[in-house]
Design a protein around this nucleic acid. Structure first.
Length: 944
RNA sequence: GCUCGGAUGGUGGAAUUGGUAGACACGUUGGACUUAAAAUCCAAUGACCAUUGCGGUCGUGCGGGUUCAAGUCCCGCUCCGAGUACCA
């Protein structure tokens, strides 16, 4: 019987589904001692219209191997899957076609599921989640309300209920409270608080809430009447239509993630994540220690605060630069400068933040005409604006010290601002002196003169603090996260507005479901798509959504028109899987479930989520832990990033309507045109007829063949995408080679974390291997395994394989374990091994990688039921004992020949044997070696 | 620009703590079986030189360095990829 992968894979996929083989157990399901839990999670996919390509399953295959391995070693494994089903592409499609995004999303999910099912994953589908399902986003809304009802106690480093803060305000005002809040929060006493109106109280509380309304900048496209994602902007204009884009302020919900900066930073230490990923998050959070320096503005009541890490250079300040968006700019600019300043602000609004950061070569800025006062010397300091200062970072103001900062130096030189030198014996005429080591001594700085940088910093802060013009400050680069999106296809906020102040809809009335709209575009006056809904008002008495025309601002109020961003639903989904479908009504998950599963033991996904999803979900987890909802304060214990699978695009040379084979010389300028990889074979030959069939536009084209009468394409490695015609569909691979081949090949391609190109030709290698494996258990058409004991050699092969494969799984080195299986099978065939003693453990070993064939072989071995929980083979050292080693004999580090020597020999004995060998004497050619280096068990190196 | 990765034969990659560079595959070439093809099996395959055999030189993106020994460690570059706060 030949290896009939189609029948086998279909048979076992049906069996697994029917028997719910991979359904995880809840703690209460165990009779007696429960198995230890192990939670393996993939980053859930966004179900796009294009379907899966072979790049998507890479991480899923790796995590599936690990999940299956853990089942073999006695764990109760939770390995769920679901969909991140809110998102921009479905909305774009809806705008174009008028189809409801829920409908296209449903279709896409169905297709994803079919594709996933064909690959043989051990997912527990009974726990599926979809972020766009109202029963799911009910809890996303619920979490939002919890955030609204919380504040951050800086002293305790913990989020707490807002009611506690209110009681404190009632008894002591806010002077004693150490809370994270807006900078502009005024101080007040208990009496003041009592005198405030309810609205005033609400406005003040918004300064403290963990989610709050604030003015933030967005990319506004006036022509489209909408806000654009950075992604939708290409070269400064909108991708759709090429319209200009401006930066504009808008009132939006924000998340006070900055309150958690310190914990997000220190929490990294205990995580089993790659050092590079942790480093990326550390840099993103960007902690820096320094001082906040306050500058008075001359002839004005205003002041500017600037954060600096170099308060020691305070006497080197020669100007102050504000971000063009800084709120003071319009108020301090002198009439003479106004025209120039306004023009500059307008120009800066057209540049994206990224452009401004990336461009360090162009120095630009404008003098405001205003002067600040040096906090220590009272000398006047000119105030400039410059777009290298970003409004969102720090205070949006920089105290410029041109002698110590290169950017300030460039700016000063460019505009002819003086560059006072505060460093002893350092020439700063050409470039700034940025060295922060203590070897640098401060000069021209009064009481700081002669001090090293490290001593000068605290001394300078002390002096500033004494005068009340500065203080020690820790600054984080991490900014509060904007949480509003002017979109349709996202979670609605459970918020309505009374007198312009936000109110939460009570928990028991959730979910607040998305309303129907006629079009998915923003309204004509620029309101988000929800502004088109006719039924989008909240009746506080009936507690239900009612028609907009009933809004009376007495009992019926308008609802929030924004929706939540993509990361809302993905920040907590891992906890939803912990509970079974039928017990999800009353909570995110039951306490029993949360306390049993805790958090994710292994998380696999792309590194592009390093600072988005992975940081936000850590933030929400910490918050929900503070508020007693979750038992853990980190979501993902271990994390592996899978690399991208790239496509091998195919190109043809075109001149007019004539196409030339790659190896035909063409003198004129030609264009390179993508052709679909499906009409090109593995030796780069193009099937012209198939191409014409696929793409009618080639019907009348001329094709110039090479001397052999073939048409050859050129190849290039690019990102796999529909527009590049280089997408390989896993369905096609499963059809031609089978899911087990696909799984093995994806792993065999290379290290899981590396980006690598897909080359379908290589599949035959792993497919051949599976055929050989099959043959090992068969004699002709007959399944054949003997009860004879295995040879010493075969046992050695087996145990060598157990050792290596087990180690590889633990190290996530799946590519090398596939090679190990190949070596193992090659050796067993050579040894003509048919013994159950070896073949039975081998079937278990390979089952995480190629589960379908393993099940079939297991059945052939006489067992009924799935192989999936059979105990994993145990490695026994005794079969691997060696008594000799093939030593490489090197001369000056170059290997010349090898010698088989007993491992029992001492260093001296080895030297004696090696020196006596005639090949050694030939190499030395009469010379006496200066040195002989012998590392027993490893190498001999003769120097001389 | 900044942050984080990566670079090894014709191709994907291996070499886990500094110790035989190129495991395992793909591809290519030659051979066996066959009327033929497919499938399968066997052999060769880093480059260059030598060749009757022995053998030799070079070689892990580039330039330096440390070491008995460097793909691996250190310093300085080049190129490519990802992220850069509203793609998910």
């Amino acid at each position: 019987m030949a290896y009939d992968f189609k029948a086998i894979e279909h048979k076992w996929q049906t069996y697994w589904a029917k028997n719910q083989t991979f359904k995880a157990k809840q703690p209460q399901d165990f009779i007696g001692e429960p198995k230890p839990p192990f939670y393996v999670l993939d980053m859930f996919p966004y179900p796009s219209g294009a379907g899966l390509h072979v790049g998507h399953p890479l991480g899923y295959i790796a995590s599936d191997i690990y999940a299956r391995y853990k089942r073999h070693t006695g764990y109760n494994v939770l390995h769920p899957q679901g969909y991140d089903s809110f998102g921009l592409p479905a909305e774009q499609y809806a705008i174009q076609t008028g189809q409801h995004p829920a409908k296209t999303t449903e279709t896409n999910i169905k297709r994803y599921r079919e594709q996933l099912d064909k690959i043989g994953f051990s997912f527990d589908w009974s726990r599926e989640v979809r972020t766009s399902d109202p029963q799911y986003y009910k809890w996303t809304q619920w979490i939002f309300i919890q955030l609204f009802e919380s504040w951050y106690d800086e002293a305790a480093q913990k989020s707490k209920p807002i009611s506690e803060l209110i009681s404190t305000f009632e008894t002591q005002g806010n002077s004693e409270v150490k809370a994270i809040c807006d900078e502009a929060t005024p101080s007040f006493s208990a009496e003041d608080w009592k005198d405030f109106s309810n609205d005033d109280k609400e406005r003040l509380l918004l300064n403290y809430r963990l989610t709050y309304l604030a003015e933030t900048e967005v990319n506004w496209c006036p022509a489209l009447g909408t806000v654009l994602a950075n992604d939708e902007i290409v070269n400064g204009v909108s991708e759709r239509g090429g319209h200009p884009v401006l930066r504009k302020k808008m009132k939006q919900w924000s998340m006070r993630i900055s309150a958690f900066a310190e914990r997000l930073l220190s929490g990294l230490e205990d995580l089993d994540w790659s050092e590079s990923l942790k480093e990326t998050q550390r840099n993103w959070i960007g902690k820096s220690v320094g001082a906040l320096v306050k500058f008075k503005i001359q002839n004005s009541t205003f002041g500017i605060s600037a954060f600096t890490t170099r308060p020691d250079t305070i006497y080197g300040v020669s100007f102050v630069t504000l971000a063009p968006e800084h709120e003071l700019v319009s108020q301090i600019t002198t009439p003479e400068q106004r025209k120039e300043v306004e023009a500059y602000i307008k120009a800066a609004a057209k540049r994206s933040e990224r452009d401004r950061m990336a461009d360090v070569k162009t120095i630009s800025g404008v003098f405001t005409g205003a002067y600040a006062e040096h906090p220590l010397t009272q000398e006047p300091i000119p105030i400039w604006i410059g777009d290298y200062v970003l409004a969102g970072y720090g205070t949006g103001a920089v105290m410029a010290v041109p002698c110590g900062d290169q950017r300030d130096h460039d700016f000063a030189k460019h505009f002819g601002v003086p560059i006072p030198n505060v460093f002893e014996g350092i020439d700063i005429s050409e470039e700034a002196h940025t060295d922060k080591s203590n070897a640098t001594k401060i000069a021209n700085s009064e009481f700081l003169n002669g001090l090293g940088v490290l001593e000068a910093i605290p001394k300078a802060i002390e002096a500033l603090a004494d005068k009340g013009v500065g203080e020690k400050k820790i600054n984080y680069r991490l900014r509060d996260a904007v949480f509003s999106r002017q979109r349709y296809w996202g979670e609605p906020f459970p918020v309505y507005y009374v007198n312009g102040l936000p109110k939460m809809i009570a928990e028991q009335h959730l979910p607040l479901e998305l309303p129907e709209v006629e079009k998915y575009l923003p309204t004509e006056d620029g309101a988000p798509p929800l502004g088109r809904a006719n039924e989008w008002a909240w009746d506080t008495e009936a507690s239900q959504v009612v028609s907009n025309d009933k809004i009376d601002h007495k009992t019926i109020f308008p609802l929030e028109l924004n929706t939540m961003p993509g990361w809302a639903g993905s920040s907590w989904y891992l906890f939803r899987y912990m509970e079974e479908q039928n017990n999800r009504d009353q909570h995110i998950a039951s306490d029993e479930a949360l306390n049993y599963w805790n958090n994710v033991d292994l998380y696999i996904g792309g590194s592009e989520h390093a600072t988005g999803h992975l940081l936000y979900s850590r933030f929400w987890t910490k918050f929900l832990n503070d508020r007693g909802v979750l038992p853990e304060d980190e979501p993902f214990k271990k994390l592996i990033n899978q690399g991208m699978i790239l496509g091998e695009s195919a190109f043809v040379k075109r001149i007019g309507n004539t196409y030339y084979s790659e190896d035909v010389k063409v003198d004129d300028d030609y264009q390179k045109i993508h052709v679909d990889v499906s009409v090109v074979d593995t030796s780069n030959k193009l099937d012209i007829e198939a191409l014409k069939l696929l793409k009618p536009e080639f019907k009348d084209a001329d094709f110039i063949l090479n001397e052999k009468g073939e048409f050859i394409v050129s190849r290039e490695v690019e990102k796999m995408s529909k527009s590049k015609f280089n997408v390989v569909n896993p369905d096609d691979v499963c059809e031609e080679y089978g899911a087990d081949s696909l799984r093995l090949y994806e792993m065999f391609l290379g290290p899981i974390e590396q980006a690598k190109p897909w080359n379908t030709a290589g599949l035959s290698g792993v497919h051949n291997f599976l055929k050989k494996l099959w043959k090992l258990y068969h004699n002709g058409d007959q399944f054949e395994v003997t009860e004879d004991s295995a040879s010493k050699e075969s046992l050695k092969t087996l145990h060598k394989t157990i050792k290596k494969v087990t180690q590889d799984i633990e190290d996530f080195s799946f590519n090398t374990s596939v090679s190990t299986f190949m070596i193992c099978v090659n050796e067993l065939i050579q040894q003509k091994c048919k013994s159950r003693e070896v073949l039975e453990p081998l079937a278990i070993l390979i089952s995480p990688y190629a589960p379908h064939i393993a099940e079939e072989l297991w059945e052939g071995l006489g067992y009924s039921g799935s192989i999936s929980e059979v105990a994993y083979p145990i490695f026994d050292e005794q079969y691997l004992k060696e008594d000799a080693k093939t030593y490489p004999i090197s001369f000056n580090g170059k290997m010349r020949f090898t010698m088989d020597l007993s491992l029992e020999l001492s260093k001296d004995e080895i030297e004696e044997v090696v020196m006596a060998d005639e090949r050694t004497q030939k190499q030395l050619d009469g010379r006496t070696p200066k040195k002989v280096i012998i590392v027993p068990g490893k190498i001999v190196n003769i120097v001389g």
